[in-house]
Design a binder for these strands. Sequence first.
DNA 1: TGCCTTGTTTGCGCCAGCGCAAAGACAAGG
DNA 2: CCTTGTCTTTGCGCTGGCGCAAACAAGGCA
Lengths: 231, 231
Amino acid sequence: MPRHLSSLNALQKSDVFKGMNEQQYEDVIRRGHRKTVGKDSVLFHQGDPATHCYLVNRNRLKLTKLNEQGKEVIIRYIGAGELTAAAAVIKDGLYPVTASSIDETEVVAWDKITMMEMMHHFPAIAINLLGIILARIDDVQQRYLEVCTEQVDQRIARSLLRLMRSAGSKSQNGILIEIPLSRQNIADYTGTTLYTVSRTLSAWEKKGWIQSGRERIVVTDPHALVAFAEG
Amino acid sequence: MPRHLSSLNALQKSDVFKGMNEQQYEDVIRRGHRKTVGKDSVLFHQGDPATHCYLVNRNRLKLTKLNEQGKEVIIRYIGAGELTAAAAVIKDGLYPVTASSIDETEVVAWDKITMMEMMHHFPAIAINLLGIILARIDDVQQRYLEVCTEQVDQRIARSLLRLMRSAGSKSQNGILIEIPLSRQNIADYTGTTLYTVSRTLSAWEKKGWIQSGRERIVVTDPHALVAFAEG
DNA sequence: TGCCTTGTTTGCGCCAGCGCAAAGACAAGG
DNA sequence: CCTTGTCTTTGCGCTGGCGCAAACAAGGCA
């Protein structure tokens, strides 16, 4: 495998290019533009005309949305191998969210025209894309249901579990969430406030369900969290 | 135009079949099964394997979602010319929501195989479908943002406005929402309770912003509602 | 090493919104 | 016209969660 591909292993895992052979895959990568964004920088802004879609290759992006008063919500995190903004690009509209990096992050970008050509040439991409978008609808609808029907601490539990599943790695005492997560971040992701998150996590730490530090969370008793979330 | 099509005018408006000629359109309709469901009946249940997708031809469907505790949320209303469950069928998964009728409702149903054949034969359908799904993601994300950041009465205002836009008709004193909407329905759609909705609507009625009766709402001052929602 | 910035904790007071309960209003059907 | 069931209103009390304020902790950088 040529050197310029060797560091793109993450792409192999990507659902977008599932079902393509080595040759096709190589072509697809060649048509994209690699880009590295520094920490805490914005890849695209909510409301900007959508020109490119992005596949994360290393680290992750945070998708946020603002309302008129400037209050922020975290829609989701996009990790290695995941795609974002495909939707907006295809439909030729505006980005509905803002994408920003937490740590230095590597992405591959394709513009609308290239994306369309690729989908035309490899129909599998279009079908995979549809599946990805549908999964994302399910996810948002699920969280909409939660925020409408459940109380704050249940939602915090579910949020931690969701983040654990998508970005967790086994560590010493449990499963570490590999995203720098402040209390404010968790609040924005759950639909509550920094204070309530802090109080809740403190309580759970006393119970031995989690261990937490500055922007760092280890789930030590996932089972207890699940039981609590569904209780 | 043959008689069996004359009563399917609603389909003409449908975004799904935009860009097709008369011949193609006729073929598509012929391949679907017309069905009429009585009032207050369920077309499909959340969790059932998805076999068919449906286009509403007359009246409307209500899409709801339940959590583990049995609490209900209204995800959206599907009116004449709108499609639902296309997603689930394509992906061959489970229905993520329950679809039920309020009044007697006419739909056209296609099963997965037919849908796939049609999409293969008329690529425009697939593209239109993508657009529809993307619009729906935007909608859910927008409402997720609202329910996370705004207070109850603002959300009720936005809900009324949304329903007014999608199912409003000019009437004597303002714009009538043509869906039988109980206070409980509005609560389920907004993420609050029947009591709070009742109190809020009473207050707005005194201000002259709306007129309401049993399961019936007329928006008399949309502008005031918009200002309030964004205030 | 010590300063400075950014994140975390916790006490405290407060209020938006919940939810019971009970009464009133409306529609349908005998 | 009355009955029955469903929907709506409103008083009342309560509490989950918000948010200020202030102290504390942890890195980062000079």
